[in-house]
Nucleic acid binder design. Structure first.
Lengths: 218, 218
DNA sequence: CACTATCGATAGTTACAGTATCCATATGCG
DNA sequence: CGCATATGGATACTGTAACTATCGATAGTG
């Protein structure tokens, strides 16, 4: 077990905790107080740490998600579970009916089922947004959706590159959990880029050889 | 104060807590144990609740952000503070140098400063992603960045529609905090849509009049 | 003038994700 | 052979974060 800890960087007490919580399968027993762990355990711990850390899932949700990987559910079911897991933080906040109606209008033309977790989550976010006194922003919503469709294509393409259900399931899970965080990070970079282009459009003479752009922000 | 509570839905004890934590300015005193609150207080409480709820900020970060609104800092500084606030959950996880190099390669050509919070956050996410045994996915990263540029334009357009620094500052803050959650939600919907189109491409005869599409997932 | 509400301070609660301690065993090295 | 070290499992504890509840003194209200 200390090897597991060394290989993953997770403290032993934490590994025991994951075992207890069912996030990690028990090792192969060799005696009442001895077990062997293999490469699969190392990878699973790294997966769990990615889900709990950057992925932002809680332990109970992460458990559902790893259980889905290990199950024999078809890949689209695994996808649904991963989607719900990634939406947990926003479900149950309940956007009002008006916000739901706006969302349905926005999503008209898309082939989604009303139970899609994004629908309710989007309603909750829009309700919160407009409750702060912000105007209704259909243009912002619509363009966000256009971009979401682009990344959704990229998400599915990535999964299709994997061979076999198990590899696909793992990619679905980690891609869904980490994809949001990745996009948010890239959005930060893109915002600064676009802002700089708009407000400090000093066209570099040699676009590919320029030094650091001007310091902005802070 | 009970009016404040009634108008916002926040319990009185919670409003007192926000006051204590500096998330909310004290009311205008009329006597040692009486104060008047106005519409600004109601809107500020709704803003705080949006930041702490769907926005996912912690109290300390939300405090910085509302302080930025109330300051006289120029709007691009407020933007920087909001960006950092939205990135808090991913900063300090430290992606390794290799991941940082990948991110820099990905962001080459963008006019951003190395201190942009998205840069480090993206490195942390990519490091976590690849640590789980997932392959390096330049295509996925690149297409996510393309989409991020699209929403970044939409973000700035939305801010430009506002008149005056204060209105812009509030839109910057709430848009940055809630934008990530909104996009994540729309991505859930877009994923199901794209998946359905690819794997159940039953072309509807009347695209605008169809009933519920087939139930997928779960 | 009794009653309810308010302010501010302080203390308590809940949920979550670990972290630490104990114990009985089991290797494995000297 | 025998003891130091590590293991698995159970249980208890810690720390953080975001509230939530109670209290005492005071102050408008009917």
């Amino acid at each position: 077990m200390s090897e597991l800890s060394a290989a993953t960087g997770a403290p032993i007490a934490t590994i025991k905790y994951y075992l207890r919580e069912g996030l990690l399968a028990p090792g192969e027993r060799t005696s009442p107080n001895q077990a062997n762990y293999g490469d699969a355990h190392v990878r699973r711990i790294r997966l769990v740490r990615a889900l709990l850390g950057p992925g932002g899932l809680d332990v109970a949700t992460a458990k559902d998600v790893v259980a889905a990987i290990d199950s024999d559910l078809p890949i689209n079911h695994v996808f649904g579970i991963a989607q719900r897991a990634a939406s947990v933080r926003l479900t149950g906040l309940g956007g009002d009916d008006e916000a739901l109606a706006r969302v349905d209008e926005l999503l008209a033309g898309l082939r989604i089922h009303p139970s899609n977790p994004g629908r309710e989550a989007a309603a909750a976010v829009i309700a919160a947004f407009e409750s702060t006194g912000q105007r209704h922003e259909p243009d912002w919503y619509r363009r966000s959706l256009e971009a979401a469709l682009v990344v959704a294509e990229a998400d599915l393409d990535m999964v299709e590159r994997r061979q076999g259900r198990d590899a696909q399931a793992e990619t679905v899970v980690v891609g869904t959990a980490l994809g949001d965080a990745l996009f948010a990070a890239l959005r930060r970079a893109a915002q600064e880029h676009v802002s700089t282009l708009r407000y400090e459009p000093v066209a570099p003479v040699e676009p590919d050889h320029r030094e650091h752009p001007d310091v902005r922000q802070h």
